[in-house]
Amino acid sequence: MSANFANRPRPRSPPELLLLHALPLDGSMWAEQMHLLPGATHAPTLYSSGETIDVWARAALEPLTGGNIIVVGCSVSGSCALEIATIAPERVSALVLIGTKAKHHPDPTFHASALRLIGEEGLEVAWESYWAPLFSRATSAATINRAKEMALRSSAAEIARGVTVFHTRPSRDHCLTTFPGPITIVSGADDVAPGPRASTSQAASTVNGRVHVLPACGHYVPLERPLALNAILRDVIASQDRA
């Protein structure tokens, strides 16, 4: 009798939601998603953690205690989500990757020029050069201005650190093909980094994946189409509750 009991699968802990911010934003970009799992939703700001995606991943994972973590990452933090799945695959039950490119080709010249622009011209110029163009033309000025205000709350040193994390991250495309849990890939139809075509191709390479392409939306889905994203996340949460 005890042997039969010992062979039963252990019950899975309740799901936790880990929301990882895009560059150059912070954890507050997830304001419209914080209610999805009350008391079990975490949205850290990672700039102070260090200058590699590995230390970001470990810092984001540290406060969580369970083994049923749904990790959601946007842009560079989609890469952070893949890093967490690489570090602690037994604790990650599902991935949601928004505007994420798993494969990375380093560009040291672009990296150096971005750091130089931030250091010499300031964050506002960098915002207009690198990040404002990633929004859809259909996105309201109010949403874009709110994102800009959020970005400018960080220091130039913090954003430069995030730029370094972005440019030095390793490729994690193998994680797409080996992670056994569900991977949901989300792209704005108007996103150019990496965009719907690359997102669809990445979803096709997964073991258990699906893709959502949201119309009238650019790179920053949680801000541009929060209601549509919430519906997707509710489905992912429900699937882990059932599991």
Rank of each mutant, 00 (worst) to 15 (best):
D235R: 15
L46N: 01
I87G: 00
V236I: 10
L20F: 02
A59R: 05
L97G: 11
V76H: 06
D241Y: 15
S77C: 08
I159P: 02
S49F: 10
T109I: 13
D173K: 11
H42K: 01
G99F: 00
T41A: 09
D26V: 12
L19S: 07
I53M: 04
Y220M: 11
D241M: 14
R58I: 00
L25Q: 04
C80Y: 01
A151Q: 01
A102Y: 14
L23M: 12
D190T: 08
R161C: 11
C217L: 10
A189V: 00
S155K: 02
L19W: 05
L36E: 00
D241R: 15
R10V: 10
R12I: 13
S201P: 00
T109M: 12
P9H: 05
G78H: 09
P24T: 01
P9W: 00
L23S: 09
S239E: 10
D54E: 14
T177C: 09
A203H: 03
G119R: 14
I183G: 07
A238R: 04
R137T: 15
E224N: 11
T184I: 11
S77E: 02
G50C: 06
G181H: 05
E16H: 10
T52M: 10
G67A: 11
N68R: 13
N7W: 07
T168A: 09
Y220T: 10
P24D: 04
I118S: 04
P222A: 04
C74N: 15
H104Q: 12
W30L: 05
P133L: 07
F166M: 13
P15V: 02
A228K: 09
E32L: 04
R137H: 15
E16A: 13
G66T: 03
C80V: 13
H219V: 11
G181I: 01
R91A: 08
A43H: 04
V125K: 15
D54C: 04
A22P: 03
A81T: 03
L64H: 02
S205G: 07
N7V: 01
R242T: 14
V92P: 03
C217M: 09
P226F: 02
E149L: 15
L23G: 02
P38V: 10
V72A: 05
L115W: 05
A141C: 04
R161V: 14
A112T: 12
D107P: 07
A142R: 08
E124D: 14
T178M: 05
I69Q: 03
A40Y: 06
N4W: 08
P215A: 14
H174F: 12
A114L: 14
G209E: 08
S13L: 10
A216T: 12
L25R: 02
S79T: 13
L97W: 04
M34C: 09
I98Y: 03
H111S: 13
P63Y: 12
P133Y: 05
V192M: 14
